[in-house]
Design a protein around this nucleic acid. Sequence first.
DNA 1: AAGTGTACATATACGTCGTAAACGTATGGT
DNA 2: ACCATACGTTTACGACGTATATGTACACTT
Lengths: 250, 250
Amino acid sequence: MAIKKDPAAGTPASGRRAPGRRAGDHGRYGRLSRERVLATALELVDREGLSALSMRRTGAELGVEAMALYRYAAGKDALLDGLVEALYTQLEEQLAASAEAPDWRDELHRIAAATYRVALDHPHVAPLLATRMLAVPLARRPLAVLRDHERILALLKRAGLDEEATVMAFRAVTGWVLGYVLGDLRAMVDNPDEPEPAFRLGLHRMPARELPCLRAAAPTLARPGAPEGLAAGLDALLDRFVPGTGPATG
Amino acid sequence: MAIKKDPAAGTPASGRRAPGRRAGDHGRYGRLSRERVLATALELVDREGLSALSMRRTGAELGVEAMALYRYAAGKDALLDGLVEALYTQLEEQLAASAEAPDWRDELHRIAAATYRVALDHPHVAPLLATRMLAVPLARRPLAVLRDHERILALLKRAGLDEEATVMAFRAVTGWVLGYVLGDLRAMVDNPDEPEPAFRLGLHRMPARELPCLRAAAPTLARPGAPEGLAAGLDALLDRFVPGTGPATG
DNA sequence: AAGTGTACATATACGTCGTAAACGTATGGT
DNA sequence: ACCATACGTTTACGACGTATATGTACACTT
């Protein structure tokens, strides 16, 4: 210990701190912050899966005791919500990286595709998109999540839908994107070391007599659906839930 | 407690036993069995939520030590998979309760509706439908799950699709059903004791300037989508993914 | 320069968790 | 009468979430 603080570390009110620089860190690598905590947790989950995430482990990754995290996340559940927030923040960055589409329909496609990309980039976090939404009520969701909802609702309104129809379409769009993403993340491979496809999938475990279609379909099923399937379904749903936008070829 | 064994249950030495009743239960309520374990776990989760489920707690509900469960489920994960299995088993019971539809499309609707009902009947278990599928590879899923997949694939094949198109449509159907169900299970109410709808939803927590559409839509959003929305979306997707079945009016 | 409040991180402790390993004990077959 | 087997218990260990109490170093007074 006893790495002493640098007197040039800056005034606390101004909040100045150089990255990798120690200020009031008791001799550690740098001050903690919500951002740093969430980034570390995300990294840990990406690397080792959700079950590896614990307060103690996350603290250790930061060179800090577990209890120190409680200043930046009220508890473990809040940490999980933080991961969801981190994902939606990445989504917003992705959306900001390319230009907004002028057409509402194209813009919905752009959002869906970006969501798909972000979710597949963090497969271990994606299940939280389903589970945490069931645990935390709308008004308490991270702001980044609410902004995503707002974007979609606004686009549908712009398409000319009234309140009721907007909500219907919203349900369709969000449900579809979530379901499709989760579907593409489903585990298929049983034995990764096996070169032979059928063995890789563990098809010998499935009773052939009872499950002929499934066994036949499994290899095709094992290839991810890709964003094309997502877009196709989205179009199908929009055709139905946004009247007057005729089937596709317009 | 401490209900002792019935002396009429059979003399231990002679081994005489009533039909359907086994001895060897150490003076407890009855032998353990996988069915009994899963039923108890399901009941516990329905009553107190997923986080209340632990090996010890489940054992206690059965009047048994936690380790006793390991004979019927290899570990906690296997217990969770058992819950998924239990839900799909209920689905099969529901499907068996009414007649199979002659038309493949109607039958898909029947399956979707039954899935929706079962999931909403066990809201605390439903998230497992998303998460466990990511953890356990296709070939290792409970048989009831695989049979569900088989049913859907067979119906789509019957609709005249080739292998590739079948899988596309399968992805669409299952993704949609899952996403829609999870969407309908999302928590909306923030303060259940509050009579005023806006306060109930906690809308005052949401920045009005930044989220106008969401605030306006929230009350409508709070009403569940109902099976009608599920059916509408399903039709939309089938129209797209099963060619030659034209929009609706056939 | 000394003192003080506050923000931040640690230390300690408690109860619960999943589960490995070893151990009874009753049962059914011989 | 004996034994193998099936079934449940006991004991133990390390990891977990987190309440509470305890430092410790900074910025701001005075």
